[in-house]
């Protein structure tokens, strides 16, 4: 078996606030291979965003190590580009300028203006947003903003693409379209992707493996399922696919089981 591109080894994350230490992640280990699509699912507050932020370098680990290509991650960087939940486009720049900011920073000093322009346009083309290149984020819909967010992240040519509940704020139809786009992009550019979600169907539809997290505090990986349904996947056919439905069922029961644990926990006074 090939060496993993990303490996998380016994990661612990504690946060301290007003002298009170809360243990968010407790002994999380995970290996991700090149080209793999991993979905991370769990109840809200279980620390799945913290885990993604560890990989992004935005949250430091308390113990353990996160390695990208065998080098320790300390601090954020473009090789681990993030698509944030609320798009995080800069509202004073046009769609084009938002992507160009990233391209310029990474390639501006080594490539010609023309090449930079081509890169921006190629990435906008990948998410089908070239028509809105001169619009500002305030003038386009939520789904379009998220597309531009994806284009900006892709333009950094990341080794691992991190998606932090990218479709959480979108309506169901737009969500479906964007899932298709992400699936298509993943097939096309063979990106390694780590995606946080709380939508079971979305997790299974997109992923090669679904990582289920137990509830926090002291959250850890409870279970991992392999999604063996062949690619390319078509949404409407998957509901007749036995292995897809099996995965789905497994995740739903895992989540329900952990839901109960939370409910019966005594409330501290």
């Amino acid at each position: 078996m090939q060496k993993p591109i990303l490996s998380l080894e016994n990661i612990y994350v504690d946060f301290e606030r007003d002298g009170v230490i809360s243990h968010v992640l407790d002994n999380v280990s995970l290996s991700v291979h090149t080209g793999e699509f991993i979905s991370i699912i769990g109840h809200s507050g279980c620390g799945k965003s913290t885990l993604l932020n560890v990989v992004a370098g935005l949250v430091p680990v308390t113990m353990g190590a996160a390695l990208l290509e065998n080098k320790e991650i300390n601090g954020p960087g473009p090789e681990r580009a993030v698509v944030f939940q609320n798009h995080s486009l800069l509202p004073w720049m046009t769609v084009y300028e938002n992507v160009k900011l990233a391209v310029n920073k990474l390639y501006g000093h080594s490539e010609s203006m023309k090449k930079v322009h081509e890169r921006v346009m190629n990435n906008l083309d990948l998410v089908k947003m070239t028509h809105a290149r001169d619009k500002r984020p305030g003038e386009i819909s939520g789904g379009m903003k998220q597309r531009v967010g994806i284009a900006r992240a892709l333009s950094m040519e990341p080794k691992v693409l991190l998606l932090d509940e990218p479709f959480g704020a979108l309506d169901a139809l737009t969500r479906g379209h964007l899932q298709d786009t992400v699936m298509e992009l993943h097939d096309r550019i063979k990106a390694t992707v780590l995606m946080i979600t709380h939508d079971v169907d979305e997790a299974v539809l997109l992923a090669d493996r679904v990582v289920m997290m137990s509830n926090g505090p002291k959250a850890t990986i409870g279970k991992i399922v392999d999604v063996t349904s062949p690619r390319p996947r078509v949404r409407r056919e998957l509901y007749n696919d036995r292995s897809f439905m099996g995965c789905r069922q497994e995740i739903v029961s895992f989540l329900e089981e952990h839901d109960r644990v939370v409910k019966f926990e005594p409330v501290p006074v």
Partner: peptide, 11 residues
């Protein structure tokens, strides 16, 4: 969010 964008881009 904007600070995170700046960090990821290493501005």
């Amino acid at each position: 969010d904007y600070l995170n964008v700046a960090k990821v881009l290493r501005l």
